[in-house]
Amino acid sequence: MPSPTGRRVAILVTCVALAAYTGLRAPSAWTATLQSISLQDGFHRRFVVGTVLHPFAEGSDYAYGLFAGTSFTILAALVAVLVVAAVRTRLPARRALVAGWLVLPTGGYLFHEVGYFEQVLFLALFGAWWLVVRGRWVAGALVMALSVCVHEIALLTVVPLFTLIVVHTLPIRRALAALLPAVVGGGCVLLGSPASGDAVPRLTVRLRDAGFPARADVLEIFGRTQAESLRMYEPLEVLSFLVPLAVLLAAGLALAFAGGPVVGAHRLLALAAATAPLVAAFAGWDTHRWAFLLLANTGVVTWWWLGRRDPDPSPGHARAVPRYQVLVAAALLCTHVPLAYFDGFAPRELTGPAIRAFVSDATSGDLLRTPTR
């Protein structure tokens, strides 16, 4: 008979395999292009990954395989963190949360968006969380400050989650000190120039000469103001898609919190952290990506909440079970919100023809062929 740990690992590996089958693809040309920008080339936003990779990129003549390998490594690390945390937790509800999140459409979407910087951001958050819990809050604060240089969307995703964690864990003055580097760093990134004047044309020429599948629209981001970006789409249309989902998630959390150990300011911070990605509607037009981030933030808040203890271990403590049921119901309702994939891809169905097509693509090499988009 397998041990309890062995059964847990088997269940979670099955969930990971299903998520990978549903959404796995080669990292897009968009993400690979974004990973090629660096401080060395004069870029001042989203530069951390590219700065680390810069010497390897030059040495390999900007081989797509370098950026694809980096993307898959980051994704594998993130999935490993989730699985290890779920296996080690003593709370079955937390384990069920991770398994459910992987089996639901969010799991497939996680594999589909391989290469996007939010995967680095959540790795940074989990690392900073680990440091804070172990009393190394200064190191955790520095990790979060670095996250805003990975991508400024950290201010709407992982920084609100980190705020909840430090306010709950540290004395208020120390919590504010832990948040200060990320806030100051984010302000500098947003207020400063995205890139030096010749950064975009120089990198464009270099990538073209290397035969790299560069996306010109990625580099155009660094030459546009936010006002110019807002004129390219309608934020209210994005909000009209996201608001019902945000309301559903907030209501589910509020009902789950009712009568439990999360009270006062912590409850408000938790709800704000879960729904903060809603503001991304004013930062870009990736509607379904923002919906995924709403679900990701809510998942992290739920994990945090499940680790809280009801202050009264009386028979009334059993009423915590219906609170879990509220979140299960909300998760099932969320499956009615589509998470449309990028670049014409769609989630793979768990059917015979779809499985045969997946095996054919994997064995022929088509699955991981260098993309044009």
Rank of each mutant, 00 (worst) to 15 (best):
W101E: 04
R202H: 14
W130F: 15
W101T: 10
H44I: 01
G69A: 07
G259C: 12
P2F: 14
A178H: 01
A329Q: 01
A77M: 13
P322W: 08
Y109Q: 08
G186L: 04
F282V: 03
L156T: 11
Y64F: 15
A274I: 06
P353G: 12
Q40H: 12
V200P: 02
L97N: 04
V247G: 12
I74R: 00
G42I: 09
T351G: 09
V148G: 05
L53S: 09
A63Y: 06
P105I: 09
R134Y: 14
T275L: 12
L219P: 01
A29D: 10
T33S: 10
A214Q: 14
Y341E: 13
G23T: 07
V321H: 11
G115K: 01
C149Q: 05
V205C: 05
D286L: 10
S36H: 03
A210D: 07
G185I: 01
S60E: 06
A63H: 07
C334N: 12
L24K: 01
V183S: 10
L12A: 06
L125F: 15
P338Y: 11
A254G: 14
V48L: 12
R356E: 15
L253A: 07
V49G: 00
A17L: 15
P194L: 02
G299C: 03
P201R: 05
R323C: 03
C334G: 08
A19D: 06
F126Y: 13
C188V: 15
P347D: 03
L146C: 11
Q325H: 02
T106I: 07
A318E: 08
A182Q: 11
T73H: 04
R309N: 04
L248D: 08
A124G: 11
D41V: 00
V247K: 10
G108H: 10
T89R: 06
H168A: 15
I221G: 05
Y233A: 05
A199N: 06
G264V: 04
L53E: 08
A330C: 12
P261A: 07
Y324R: 08
A214H: 10
M144W: 06
V321W: 10
G140M: 03
L39V: 14
L245N: 02
I11E: 02
G192Y: 12
Y64A: 03
L180E: 02
A63L: 09
F222N: 01
H266E: 06
